[in-house]
Design a protein around this nucleic acid. Structure first.
Lengths: 130, 130
DNA sequence: CCTCAATTACGAAACTTTTCGTAATTAGCT
DNA sequence: AGCTAATTACGAAAAGTTTCGTAATTGAGG
């Protein structure tokens, strides 16, 4: 029931985190360039957001020459878990099955991947008895 | 890649939608009572949010006596799809498998449900060839 | 048809997020 | 050391969200 999660990254913050997760520690410049591949956003806007994230403890930064190198402090897996729980709770009324069915139904998933999921399911089935 | 989704319900709006989805067309009173089961929120606050949702076209309303009956205009399945896509894109880099593994790994899912998912997977496997 | 309790409308305050202009600082180069 | 381009800091405006007090409206019962 409760939803007392620590992180509540905003939309913009999540976009930045996503970039830091995939590209690793980066400068504002790098992040801004990456953001601009999908939408126009000013350098100082990105800078500000990353500074705020630093204040909030979502990232840390170290000086390297005149630049700052930003690093995600939020673990990607933890964030995935939290975001998933949120969607699960608000949109799918807590039904993981429902969510999984949706996810599989709406995206193309390769046979290999389907097989991996099936193996996980079989493992889960072996581990429980209800 | 693109993310040009029509709906961007806020946190509060999603909570209201969730209630309308499960309880069907409802008055502000009903929704507010329901909200207050999990958090304290004033009547006029709920009213205002629902009025804004009406302005945005997320719900419509019809007069019934002195009350208004609010009805979700956002289809639950459509919303689920959009929210899922968003999480999928931002947190799981688009990998449905990854998301599914997380979802199944972190929640308790009954054997019956696991079986249903397995059947879907087998159906999907039959339908494709890669 | 009058009253009153319930409901809705209005508006504004507090807060957060997003955006960016401009000033200050910094490191690299000559 | 001094200049310049890059970078960061500062601050504030604009937009959106959340909250709620108070006024206006409404319908049901007497």
């Amino acid at each position: 029931m409760m939803n007392k999660n620590k992180y509540n990254p905003t939309e913009s913050e999540l976009e930045v985190l996503k970039i830091l997760w995939t590209k690793g520690p980066s400068t504002v410049q790098t992040v801004n360039d990456e953001l601009n591949k999908s939408k126009e956003v000013g350098y100082t806007t990105t800078l500000k957001i990353m500074q705020i994230m630093s204040d909030k403890g979502l990232v840390n930064r170290t000086k390297a020459g005149r630049k700052h190198i930003y690093n995600a402090l939020v673990n990607q897996h933890a964030a995935q878990k939290i975001l998933l729980e949120k969607v699960l709770d608000t949109a799918f009324s807590g039904s993981a099955m429902n969510l999984v069915m949706h996810a599989l139904g709406n995206t193309r998933t390769s046979k290999h991947e389907l097989n991996q999921i099936k193996q996980l399911i079989e493992k889960l089935e072996r581990e429980q008895n209800d």
